[in-house]
Design a protein around this nucleic acid. Structure first.
Length: 946
DNA sequence: GCCCTGACTTGGGAGCATTGTC
DNA sequence: GACAATGCTCCCAAGTCAGGGC
């Protein structure tokens, strides 16, 4: 890639111009990572092998933090029905990513028993000195006193030979020898990405199994006889890189240095943001004073009509007016989706000077009094930990509990009323006349006829139960089995087809019409700044599509009416007109301590609410996002102590303490979710604190096998080698209990989080996920990126992204067309290879002066110059190479969902900084929507490290 | 200290729009 | 231009976690 005088930012207004974070002679030259500041525009980076990611496996590098390596293949695992067995070696290679974080260790790291700490490295990068003994799955490892505490999960895997041929779950090496905790250990493991902290199991059994399994609706696993890892839990699929670079010991010490010192690049401070004055929007506020002291008489909680004053004050905190988020007034025609990327880049920088200064909220005497009272009631323990226990929930710059001063919006838009189609369903073979209300619900079910829901008893029972209430006792329809919804289903298919057949003009016209109707609801004005509203459409009625084995699936979600909806709006602002004539809102509030614009009670679960919020691109959300990442970033400074702390407590005689220690260990090492208690009317899923005895199996001498349904009923199945004290503790917690009993019976998320706050302000269980995800990305990008082509760089990013997705167990179902696509690709590759063979033969003949003979069509072949044939061969080979790469990527990512981590767990500043440093156009990584969401991160310095 | 509520984030999939291939 | 593949956005379900009430 050329780096000669590329403009750092485009200076023009061309919306279509890719936003490349290139350096220009006028911008600050980017210092190379290795060389510190550099005045040269051209980067000089370590001369790493230019091989693609796929090819790097096994290549030793000088890097101190080995990357997660290519997954090793494993084996035969239970797979969900419908999954296909890939056969090719390429496929196998992809599958291997199922785990075995253990395999991630690089050989020389393995051999390197240096004490060089890698605590500060992301887990994914951590090496394990004593690899032979440890296995992990899904990120399990215990390196608190090791050198990998700061590494991301994916990088903390050491390789080790795993001999199991028949194991049913893949294991990943983890340190087994319980180390004595050395607080002054020079470990650098604390900051490694999780993935690197797993030992890698070189040559892991191809039969081990931790395949990711999507069990959303059907938890049953189909045993497969192939060695695919496709269905292994992602958490256990961290790619290994047995031979990959390992960090040199010399650099290890850097892990403990402040980031700024580690990556000082000289010219720090130079702004890299572009400035485009025309894009800077005035902060006028349409007549509503954004600094006005809006009365805080709002009610804190929806539904609470008697608590307005107190609720409004409840969250108020001493002002913190650091409004760093970008706030921009959208021009009338400025749909955020079409904001030029470069404009988005200006948000962070330009907005700083343009932000409406939020009010400094002084606590009212009442609120102070209330706070004092609260303070006095704190227990000694709470007081002791008060500095850490203080809620940090409010986003920065929100002025304490106050989220806005003025708020204008137009309410919500309702779905159109039901339009009866008149198609008669059959009952007992006879057409049945239905009223519009009856037909509406019948249609809801009919259109789902070919979904899995329609085959589930719970879904059918719930639907039929609710439908019968509408049909009434005397209706002819009595039994579901006699119902035939086919005529309605066929009508639905015809409608779909009609829609599909519409010309693009007709579709466009429809879109425009819809946009016209919705335009007014799409925007809100917050403190004088026009912001996009997220979900301004009221959910239409339908059948509840609960995931997994949700007991309420199929129940009727009734139509929401204005009288169900509570509106939240600025006090001196006109209340949105109710769009349905003759009806009115349930209530109107003016609560500026919350960010919702409207809510209604969930018709399926009355205790739950459905909120209307601002869009992700809004400054309020941006501030909150930034705060989240800052908090996670702070964890890096505490992680070593936290790990030392919980390790100490593994052997505590106080069972509660011991359970907290072990749970924290699991959350840290396996990126498990906290695990709140669930009600009986919810799907039976678990997290760390709610693990049941039958969710964890102790496999001597020191492995734990986890098998449970997590969020969204996605299966987490993983075998992890853990520290012996952890293993013993889990065994102890299970003793005397039966299946279904809680492993951590002395623990819940409240206790756990309270404890975590003692260790770091604002720390909660979920912060570990963000921390490990972001530090993994940061580490991999910095270790792996080389001076390659743009495509190669993007491949590095994708791989890092994938590591994180695996750590977080972000799975997706294999697309229906996956197999067809793979078959087509294989056929094309074979065809091209045959062409190359033929051309090579021709070339040989020509060189020997022999005639070429006839082609496949029987006609004499055209004579070409040898150079032309060689050129053609080369072109086809390049094509084959590309297709092989496509194939690998496709297979590799078929069960991994990259988007979730990108949107929720990866600090965007890491990505932006990397793009700037490596001249990768940011839109190659972030879509327009994500760019809008991360506007606040766009002006980060290229040398930013998480 | 427990239970419950409220507010917010996280999450996968459906379906639509865009891009690529022939 | 037709069709397929890919990518993106929207939808809404399902988590987390703080704080109030008793």
């Amino acid at each position: 890639m050329s780096v000669v005088n590329p403009p750092f930012y485009d200076d023009n207004d061309d919306d279509d111009t890719p936003l490349s974070f290139k350096r220009s002679s006028t911008s600050r030259p980017a210092p190379s990572k290795q060389e510190g500041a550099s005045a040269n525009i051209t980067y000089v980076r370590s001369p790493k092998a230019a091989a693609s990611n796929h090819q790097r496996n096994g290549i030793n590098g000088a890097s101190r933090s080995p990357l997660p390596l290519k997954p090793q293949f494993t084996n035969s695992n239970p797979r969900p029905s419908g999954y296909v067995q890939p056969n090719s070696s390429v496929e196998r290679s992809q599958k291997s990513n199922t785990v075995d974080k253990s395999k991630m260790k690089r050989p020389h790291a393995e051999g390197n028993k240096s004490d060089d700490s890698d605590d500060d490295k992301p887990l994914a990068f951590r090496k394990k000195p004593d690899t032979k003994l440890k296995k992990v799955v899904a990120g399990g490892e215990n390196a608190y006193d090791s050198d990998d505490d700061h590494k991301p999960l994916g990088m903390n895997i050491n390789s080790a030979k795993v001999a199991s041929n028949n194991s049913t779950s893949k294991t990943v090496l983890v340190k087994t020898a319980p180390k004595t905790v050395q607080p002054d250990d020079d470990s650098d493991d604390d900051h490694k990405p999780l993935g690197q902290r797993f030992n890698s199991a070189k040559g892991a059994s191809s039969n081990s199994t931790n395949k990711p399994v999507l069990l959303k609706s059907e938890p049953k696993i189909v045993q497969s006889d192939d060695d695919s890892e496709d269905e292994k839990p992602l958490a256990s699929r961290l790619p290994t890189n047995a031979a990959s670079k390992s960090r040199g010991s010399a650099s290890d010490s850097e892990d403990e240095k402040p980031l700024s010192a580690r990556f000082s690049r000289g010219t720090a401070g130079t702004s890299v943001s572009i400035s485009n004055s025309k894009d800077k929007l005035p902060s006028n506020n349409k007549g509503l004073n954004n600094n006005s002291s809006a009365p805080r008489n709002s009610v804190k909680r929806p539904g609470d009509n008697n608590n307005q004053t107190s609720s409004a004050l409840k969250k108020i905190k001493y002002s913190d007016v650091s409004v760093s988020g970008s706030v921009k007034r959208e021009s009338k025609d400025d749909d955020s989706n079409s904001i030029p990327v470069e404009r988005k880049l200006t948000l962070g920088e330009s907005s700083k000077s343009k932000l409406p200064v939020k009010n400094i909220v002084k606590k009212s005497p009442l609120s102070v009094k209330k706070d004092n009272k609260k303070f006095k009631t704190k227990t000694k323990k709470a007081m002791k930990s008060s500095q850490f226990s203080k809620s940090l929930r409010e986003p920065p710059g929100s002025g304490g509990g106050k989220k806005w001063s003025t708020l204008e919006h137009n309410g919500v838009i309702f779905p159109p009323l039901y339009d009866p189609h008149g198609v008669k369903m059959l009952y007992n073979g006879q057409p049945v006349e239905l009223t519009p209300d009856e037909e509406e619900v019948a249609t809801m079910f009919a259109v789902m006829k070919d979904t899995e829901y329609a085959t589930k008893k719970t879904f059918i029972d719930n639907f039929f139960g609710d439908w019968k209430k509408i049909l009434g006792k005397n209706h002819i329809i009595k039994k579901f089995e006699l119902c035939d919804f086919t005529p309605i289903f066929e009508w639905h298919l015809r409608e779909k087809e009609k829609k599909k057949q519409m010309t693009s003009e007709e579709k466009k016209a429809l879109r425009e019409e819809k946009l016209k109707q919705e335009e007014k609801y799409m925007w809100a004005v917050v403190d004088g700044v026009r912001e996009k509203v997220g979900n301004f459409r009221v959910e239409p009625p339908g059948l509840f599509r609960g995931r997994g084995e949700h007991p309420k699936m199929g129940k009727l979600k009734r139509r929401i009416r204005p009288s169900d909806i509570t509106i939240n709006i600025g006090k001196d602002t006109p209340v949105p007109e109710c769009p349905i004539e003759g009806e009115s809102w349930k209530e109107v509030k003016h609560d500026n301590t919350v960010t919702w614009l409207a809510f209604w009670n969930d018709p399926i679960s009355q205790k739950d609410f459905k909120y209307v919020f601002l869009a992700a691109s809004s400054s309020l959300k941006g501030q909150s996002d930034k705060e989240k990442y800052e908090k996670s970033r702070k964890l890096k400074d505490h992680i070593h102590n936290i790990r030392v702390n919980y390790t100490k407590d593994f052997k505590s005689k106080d069972v509660s303490k011991k359970q907290i220690a072990v749970a924290t260990y699991l959350i840290d090492k396996l990126a498990l979710r906290a695990g709140n208690e669930k009600d009986d009317d919810e799907a039976d899923t678990v997290g760390c604190c709610t693990l049941k005895v039958d969710n964890v199996t102790c496999v001597p001498p020191n492995k734990l096998q986890f098998d449970f349904l997590g969020k969204d009923s996605i299966r987490y199945f993983n075998t992890v080698e853990v520290e012996l004290p952890v293993y013993n503790a889990i065994e102890e917690f299970r003793t005397g209990k039966k299946d279904g009993d809680a492993v951590f019976d002395k623990l819940d998320t409240t206790k756990l989080n309270h404890h975590l706050k003692d260790l770091m302000p604002g720390l909660t269980a979920k912060v570990f996920r963000t921390y490990n995800a972001s530090i993994t990305l940061d580490a991999i990008l910095h270790e792996e990126t080389e001076d390659g082509t743009l495509l190669e760089k993007i491949a590095v990013y994708q791989r890092a992204n994938k590591e994180v997705a695996i750590i977080c167990n972000h799975q997706r179902a294999v697309s229906k067309s996956h197999d067809t696509q793979m078959t087509k690709l294989n056929e094309k590759i074979d065809e091209l290879k045959a062409q190359v063979d033929e051309l090579n033969k021709d070339l040989g003949k020509m060189k020997r002066g022999k005639p070429l003979g006839n082609g496949a069509d029987g006609k004499p072949k055209r004579t070409l110059a040898p150079e032309a044939i060689e050129k053609k061969i080369s072109q086809i080979e390049t094509k084959i190479e590309k297709m092989e790469m496509d194939k690998k990527t496709k297979e590799d990512l078929k069960t991994v969902a990259l988007g979730t981590s990108k949107i929720n767990y990866l600090d965007p500043r890491i990505t932006v900084a990397w793009c700037k440093t490596h001249e990768v156009p940011i839109e190659k990584i972030f879509s327009k929507t994500i760019l809008a969401k991360f506007g606040w991160a766009m002006d980060v310095e290229p040398d930013f490290r998480f």
